[in-house]
Amino acid sequence: MSIAIDGFDLDAFVTATLAEDLGEGGDVTSAAVIPAGARFTAVMDSRDAITVAGLEIAAAFFHRLDPDAATTLLAGDGEQVAAGAPLMRIEGNARALLTAERSALNTVQHLSGIATLTRTYAERIEGTGATLLDTRKTIPGLRRLEKYATRLGGATNHRMGLWDAAMIKDNHVAVAGGVAQAAARAKAAGVERIIVEVDRLDQIEPALAGGATHLLLDNMPPDTLREAVALVGGRVPTEASGGVTLETIRAIAESGVDFVSVGRITQSAPAADIGLDFALA
């Protein structure tokens, strides 16, 4: 396996996923219907035009249950393929490969869906100078994988978790007593990256005075974003966030912000339509 995702344990993921599917009784269908020595050859293909993600992870499921299985990747992660494109050819023990099928497909369908939707958003803002960011709106336990998929689609990863930057949002501000106070406390605590969410123009200067190193401009229309960018004057990076859709992202990016963050690319991405079909050897 050549895939390398920081913080992701492939063996543990495969083990846990198969354990969830097999339970205590194993694959009763394959055990009952498929002769023990039967062989199986199949092709995984996409019924949609997609940006591919997760193929090598999928292959790991087949190899776990049949170490001698032959898997040939016919596309690569990050590649854009047309509907009908073959993605992988698999040959091996029929029982093992059919048992691994759903876990492998679920992984590729989910991650390719994210990468594909991300690519659509990234293409909408090409030429604006703005960078697409993902968010922490991910399925619990799958963040590393989902953020891998957004990178394949053309996004840049925002925070991986709560530990790699301070992000001061409205509830933090309410408890701390204001954006300046909240930012100053983060700075005093020695936090290097201090992202402060502001939803009004009059919060910009207090946030900067408190020590913000990045401003998140929340739910502002493009005209207000332009005003905000002008007020900031390049002192810190600016990020537009909140309710961004495919219909609105271009105008938002053209406001002059450095970044646009979109939760939908992980939170609402539809799974890609990918199948595994029997093929002649």
Results as ranks from 00 to 15, higher is better:
143 R>A: 06
93 N>K: 04
204 I>W: 14
238 T>C: 13
15 T>F: 11
113 G>R: 01
266 T>K: 04
107 T>S: 01
205 E>F: 09
244 V>Y: 09
13 F>R: 02
39 R>S: 13
90 I>E: 05
134 D>P: 06
156 T>V: 13
85 A>Q: 01
90 I>L: 07
139 I>A: 15
23 G>V: 00
87 L>I: 11
23 G>P: 02
14 V>E: 07
275 G>W: 10
27 D>N: 00
253 A>F: 01
112 S>F: 02
74 L>M: 15
183 A>H: 10
212 A>Y: 07
245 T>N: 05
48 D>Q: 04
173 V>A: 00
245 T>W: 02
81 V>M: 06
185 R>Y: 07
220 M>V: 01
172 H>A: 05
150 T>N: 11
43 V>G: 03
92 G>L: 00
2 S>W: 03
175 V>E: 00
96 A>M: 13
7 G>P: 04
269 A>V: 08
173 V>G: 00
147 K>R: 05
170 D>W: 02
209 A>G: 12
238 T>V: 09
98 L>D: 11
111 L>R: 09
11 D>P: 01
39 R>H: 10
225 L>S: 08
142 L>Y: 10
112 S>P: 03
256 G>F: 04
121 Y>G: 05
111 L>K: 13
63 H>Q: 10
267 Q>I: 00
215 L>T: 05
116 T>W: 01
270 P>S: 08
84 G>S: 04
102 R>L: 10
192 E>V: 13
181 Q>R: 12
104 A>F: 05
227 E>W: 03
182 A>W: 03
42 A>Q: 06
74 L>S: 13
248 T>W: 09
256 G>N: 04
24 E>T: 12
141 G>Q: 07
221 P>W: 12
244 V>D: 10
56 E>M: 11
71 T>C: 15
53 A>W: 09
126 E>T: 15
225 L>I: 06
201 L>G: 02
229 V>Q: 05
82 A>Q: 13
101 E>Y: 05
194 I>V: 11
30 S>A: 13
72 T>W: 12
9 D>Y: 06
135 T>C: 02
16 A>W: 06
